[in-house]
Design a protein around this nucleic acid. Sequence first.
RNA 1: CGGGGCGUAGCGCAGUCUGGUAGCGCGCACGGUUCGGGACCGUGAAGUCGGAGGUUCAAAUCCUCUCGCCCCGACCA
Length: 559
Amino acid sequence: MKFSQMLIPTLREAPSDAEAVSHKLMLRAGFVRQLAAGLYIYLPLGLRVINKINRILREEMDAIGAQEISMPVMHPAEIWQTTGRWYEIGAEMFRLKDRTDRDMCLGMTHEEIMTWLASREIRSYRDLPQVWYQIQTKLRDEARPKSGILRTREFHMKDSYSFDADEEALDINYNAHAKAYHRIFERCGLKFYQVESDTGMMGGAAAHEFMASSQAGEDDIVLCDKCGYAANVEVAKSKPSDSGNTVWDFEEIHTPQKRTVKEVSNFLKAVPASFIKSLLMISDDKPVLVLVRGDQDLHEKKLSKIIGKFRAAGKDEILSILGVEAGFIGPAGHKVRMLADPSLKDGTYIGGANKSDYHVKGLKAGVHFNPEWHDLHTAKEGDRCVNCDNVLRIEKAIEIGNIFKLGTKYSLPLKAVYLDSNGNEKPIIMGSYGIGPARIAAAAVEQNNDKDGIIWPRSIAPFDVELIPLNVDDAKTIEVTEMIHKGLVAEKMEVLIDDRNERPGVKFKDADLIGIPVQVVIGEKGLREGLVEIKDRKTKQAEKIAVGDATRKIILLAH
RNA sequence: CGGGGCGUAGCGCAGUCUGGUAGCGCGCACGGUUCGGGACCGUGAAGUCGGAGGUUCAAAUCCUCUCGCCCCGACCA
């Protein structure tokens, strides 16, 4: 491919509305352009990367016996109504009507449609198992598209769906997918973790996410380096560190105008971990008093799993329900339902005195308050692993893939059933498995770049080698460039030739920006001694090679 | 959806407070000199100042409404 004939609009400066490193670099290097919020055009280089990723996806999916099929992007509403998701999902679903006023939607994911197909085509246990996948466009009207191609409103997804006779068979498919995903992300050159995750809108029994470490990530993952525990903070369990507080006798203390844990802990010179944070929530019109340790954050998802939807009570509600001014709530002496995090079970604590400008020391569970105990805190750096007591760490990560055990969540409503060997009708047991190719690309850039630009992992680079003839008016230079090119193409290498009539500096800068792993510089100076220069984009190390050996050496370096 | 910021030439920005003929750098076109890490000189093209309405002799600038984009939060395969 000739650079001069390809659309590679590199930019000296990044547009100001780009924030994430991957977004800036993909814009500057001419891989993508933005059409509107969350809508991106993939230019030739960008598309080549996506195609490389998709090829790996297909190879690995085919290797576990999955079959590629193609599904409509637009769906009739009825199917989504049958599973209830038409009503559960809000503005995130693009909805429209066709000319006959029939409700339609644009597919955010394809559980419904895949299950519909299974319900018509699978009859017998002899038809099982089946694994179907597609690599297609999904549409979600995201509340907040962001970070370039990381969160977009239209995106490609490799999504596969498994159909099995029973849970054991589902486990086999689930594990096969997990293994395939490991191979896929390894082949794409990513640093990633498999973590326990929430089942979210997919519903179902179990779920894992595949997470690529990156500052641009939207998720926090909790990791134990000793036993390997890994979980999204959305579901992570942890043992809080010791509260480090002393044993206090019960005592009321004057704390004028000190309301927050921070204010009171500064005032009393006691660590936040020696406090009880008392939060009043309203769920189903009923008050619930929630207690976590002063250094902890309430985990709202964990709480809502216990009490359902809830909201924080307003200042007036706190006063009318508890008879206390906000900031001085304590756990003692209330009749409302009370939940507490187990970290408060032992020891004595400081909390609100339930009257203005006073707190109390020496609060003790079982003596002054008797809550229901539930894990309610958000795991944080420095907490300990529930399995092995090792200190946990937290990393930011990009979700690049997920796997869900769906069970019968979709097969029951859509009547996807089969007859077992005894002639009994049974629901098909399903799993669903997604990967975002664009997120793989973005994560790869996030993890592999330097001040000069992108450093593509070889497996997903837009080209294997970039040839850089410095003076395109020099006959010898062109002759050698073409010779090397021919040799590489014969070995199935994908080669970009920067044949532009530009100064060397411009070509070097663009080559580093674009990030093709191997650069070959063909200059008159070197050619006088019969040499060309082979450069590794990542290490920036250059080697001068005799023209005759160039092709062989390049192939060695490019593999 | 809540909070904040920004829309001026293809890109990056100044000008807005204090109204008075729209500017700079890069890029682009042409000529010349250059040619191993984003060259230099000269000439030139290119802007409904996001849009609508209003105030005013006069609006990029002041007022009202509106659209778009980004960031934080909520939400999120």
